[in-house]
Design a protein around this nucleic acid. Sequence first.
DNA 1: TGGCGGGACTGAAGCGCTTCAGTCATGCTG
DNA 2: CAGCATGACTGAAGCGCTTCAGTCCCGCCA
Lengths: 362, 362
Amino acid sequence: MLSVDSDRRRRPTLDTVAAAVGVSRATVSNAYNRPDQLSSSLRERILETARALGYAGPDPVARSLATRSSAAVGFMLPQGLSGAFSDPALSIVLDGLASTVDGHDHSLVLMPGDSTGGPRPSIVTRAQADVMVAYSLPDTAPAFEAVAARGLPLVVIDQPVLPNSARVEVQDYLGASFAASLLLGLGHSLFGVLTFSLHPDGVSGPVSFERRSDVPFRVSRDRLGGYLDTLEKAGVKPDNVPVWEARGSDRELGRLGARWLLTRTPRPSALLCASDQLAFGCLQAARDLGLTVPRDVSVVGFDDVPEAAYSDPPLTTVRQPLADKGRRAGELALKLLAGGRPPRPTRLDVSLVERASAALRT
Amino acid sequence: MLSVDSDRRRRPTLDTVAAAVGVSRATVSNAYNRPDQLSSSLRERILETARALGYAGPDPVARSLATRSSAAVGFMLPQGLSGAFSDPALSIVLDGLASTVDGHDHSLVLMPGDSTGGPRPSIVTRAQADVMVAYSLPDTAPAFEAVAARGLPLVVIDQPVLPNSARVEVQDYLGASFAASLLLGLGHSLFGVLTFSLHPDGVSGPVSFERRSDVPFRVSRDRLGGYLDTLEKAGVKPDNVPVWEARGSDRELGRLGARWLLTRTPRPSALLCASDQLAFGCLQAARDLGLTVPRDVSVVGFDDVPEAAYSDPPLTTVRQPLADKGRRAGELALKLLAGGRPPRPTRLDVSLVERASAALRT
DNA sequence: TGGCGGGACTGAAGCGCTTCAGTCATGCTG
DNA sequence: CAGCATGACTGAAGCGCTTCAGTCCCGCCA
């Protein structure tokens, strides 16, 4: 144990190297950060000596303190990691973001959420990041206050505008209304809706009317609203549309909900789902019940994850540009970091992708 | 822009608060970190003043420098985020790890890999973490040198022992041999194997013999070896076993591979898959080809992800304790951080879970 | 009443780096 | 040859915090 301690304690620093080479500490620093500030021969000699001494380069923490920049972006999730990643949409967004910040030598600090619908404030307060991005947190997440208290710039994905934050979002309401209109146009009149969390309490089940109001998750609110409003405009009373809330966006939870929806009387001939994962669950549930999609029931999803093209049957869904969303968020984060003012919200387009899971009502 | 700059520059520090309250900086620090070092009335007053001043607590970076600990664990992935998370097994492991370190107020820095099969060394060198955990990187990943150069403690998951690192692993070879034995016992003699990456070059396709040697990914090596060796012992020549390598562990890649395997002549009556995701792809491919599982072909997976119990048919698979793996890795990381020497490798058990996707050869 | 143990708080020395205003040769211009 | 721009390197002031050896004062015991 002692040896570990002393190993760690005795690591060489800039000064060690400077002394060994016989130059000032500033010069060694320049060798790493500003090669143009010294002759290349000296630089070579410094780097060489550093290597020999086992010096791996300037300590990241000390550098961060001196530059007042930690070169990291924090990513706040609405739930724990396993739940969060069960929706491939998140992976894709995060990948887009990661590749962007990565390209600028920034790293990614992940902050998993808990039952409050976001990371605990203490996590946020202590995170070494100089810009935060919030992904689909409920409007009420306490994490936001922590971010504000630290005065960190913020970019929100899929969320209402917060003072002093940049935002990227997708036209969820519009996309949902596309989906509903499609089904309406195909002659359907009996619907069921399958949504993911409306409230951060981790509840799954049929959605009562009270529960439909004051929904803190913007995405759920908009998609559900888009479905229901559109149906209502076409004369389908919301009271007659059963809605199931799954506590996450995964296939199995979708199957559970769809089973419930498909055993209502009268049985819906069309299911509107808040995500593709949920829709895949519907496909499965239909199969379980001996129903054929789309003959007996039409299903439409939301997201257009890659797998949607290969499901059985291929999924009709609303496409949103997931990777772009992540990339754009990354760019915004970098921009705020550079001192930019939050620009106007970036709003990404959605479009309907018609495949085989929705058809004329028979 | 100026205002953002000055906002950020003029943030209050410990000194600001100390001056406002009329105490020393040390006392303010104690108010946050050692409540027992001052009277609670003074502490109240300090915290109150801090709040009024908009001071959000000690700066994490400065604190890290002073304590020589960044309170973060770095997680090194073999590939980009979207690829990495398409295997739910990773999400579960990471979730286990995250909840462990999170409970100790440590955060998680994600380091995505690239085509070298791990994060770029520069990322590792600059990451603010004081212990690294490597998840299923190829033995040859350059990231390891960077970790060693920094002298950071390391814990590896699913990988051969590296000098001075802790390790948690699963009995992949044994698990694979269980699976092969089961199928052999059911009377099968025509096999196909579907594996994920053997080499970090992102290639998918039938696996030549050269490619089967010097496999840098331990997991792939052990599972493939477990399958093939067991079959060979039972008299099934490896030359007669077609093997397909998918460049990742996802359902669609599995479907592609299975389609190839199931169109060989003679057609295999049993498919051994390196992961459940790949096995789900097989199920789909069989369906595409009009084959029934397990009547026409038996399929066995590896991992036992939650969904395996709900697939159609439910998947026979090798169970490994995924969440434990992550938790254990987290504990090891924390232990190394506390100055512990790397303990003996933790080896987790596997077991066979028989469900409905494997049956007697007909 | 003198001595003393403790509780409450402080001073100052770092932690390892970046950065900026210089200093000092050197070589070039006119 | 004076004058000066240029390139190469340095000194020292931070960055915002933790920590530890003190200092000081108060109340208590004998």
